Amino acid sequence: MAMNGTITTWFKDKGFGFIKDENGDNRYFHVIKVANPDLIKKDAAVTFEPTTNNKGLSAYAVKVVPL
């Protein structure tokens, strides 16, 4: 089920960042999981599918909501 969130941290040079989800949890995401990576920036609103990996909470099918 899709969730909403906000990008809180973005490491462009490393290709990953973190999203604060609607429950207040931080989720890892990688640029290859983003549909529109050219719009990635700190504080951008996103929708995504929540999941977990071996390191904890993460996100896939991430879409940055255009302003």
Rank of each mutant, 00 (worst) to 15 (best):
P50L: 04
A59D: 02
V64E: 01
W10Y: 09
T52K: 13
S58R: 05
G17R: 02
N23Q: 08
F18K: 03
V65Q: 11
G24H: 05
I40F: 05
F11L: 06
T51L: 11
D21S: 03
K41V: 10
L39C: 13
V34L: 04
Y60Q: 15
T9F: 14
N23R: 10
T8I: 14
A44Q: 06
I19C: 02
A44E: 05
F48T: 00
K63R: 12
F18R: 03
D43I: 03
A45C: 12
V31Q: 09
F11M: 06
D38V: 09
A35T: 13
D43V: 03
L57C: 05
L57N: 05
V65R: 08
F29E: 00
K20E: 07
T47S: 08
D43A: 09
K20W: 07
V62A: 01
N4A: 10
G56Q: 07
F29I: 03
T8G: 05
K20L: 14
G24W: 03
G17I: 03
G17P: 00
D38I: 08
L39W: 10
T6R: 12
E49T: 15
P50F: 04
V65Y: 10
H30Y: 08
V34D: 04
E49P: 01
I32D: 15
Y28T: 03
L39K: 11
L67I: 12
T9W: 13
A45V: 11
S58G: 11
F29R: 00
D38P: 07
K33I: 11
V65C: 10
T8V: 14
K33S: 15
A61I: 05
S58W: 06
G15P: 01
I32G: 15
N53F: 08
A61M: 11
K33D: 15
D13H: 12
D43S: 10
D21E: 01
L67A: 14
K20F: 10
V65W: 12
G56S: 06
N23E: 06
D25T: 06
A44P: 01
T6K: 11
K63I: 12
K55L: 11
K42A: 08
D43R: 11
N53E: 07
D25E: 10
A35R: 11
V31Y: 10
M3T: 05
I32H: 15
T9P: 01
A59C: 13
T8P: 02
K55F: 14
K12E: 10
D25H: 10
W10H: 02
A35K: 14
N4D: 06
N23K: 10
T9V: 14
A2W: 12
F29M: 03
Y60N: 15
V34P: 03
K55M: 12
A59F: 03
L39A: 10
F11T: 03
I7Q: 00
N26I: 15
T6D: 03
I32L: 15
N53A: 08
N54K: 14
S58N: 05
Y28A: 04
I32T: 15
L57R: 06
D21N: 00
T51G: 11
V34C: 11
F48L: 03
N54M: 11
I40R: 01
T8N: 07
K12I: 08
Y60P: 01
D21K: 01
H30I: 08
K12V: 09
N4Y: 12
D38H: 13
M1T: 15
A44S: 07
N36Q: 06
K33F: 15
T51E: 12
Y28N: 04
N36P: 02
A59P: 01
S58D: 04
S58I: 08
K33H: 15
A35Y: 14
D21R: 01
I40C: 07
D25G: 07
V34E: 03
N53P: 04
A35H: 12
D13P: 06
H30D: 11
I19Y: 01
E22Q: 11
I7T: 00
P50D: 02
T6Y: 13
A61C: 13
G5V: 02
N36D: 06
N54W: 13
P66T: 14
P37G: 04
W10D: 00
N26Y: 15
P37N: 04
T52R: 13
D38A: 12
T47W: 07
L39T: 06
K12Y: 08
F18L: 05
F48G: 00
H30W: 07
H30N: 13
V34G: 04
K33T: 15
G24R: 04
A61K: 13
L39F: 11
E49Q: 15
Y60I: 15
A2G: 10
V65N: 08
I7D: 00
K63E: 09
E49A: 13
P66L: 11
I7R: 01
T47L: 09
V65H: 11
N4S: 13
K14Q: 09
D13V: 10
V65D: 07
P66M: 11
V46L: 02
V64K: 00
N36F: 06
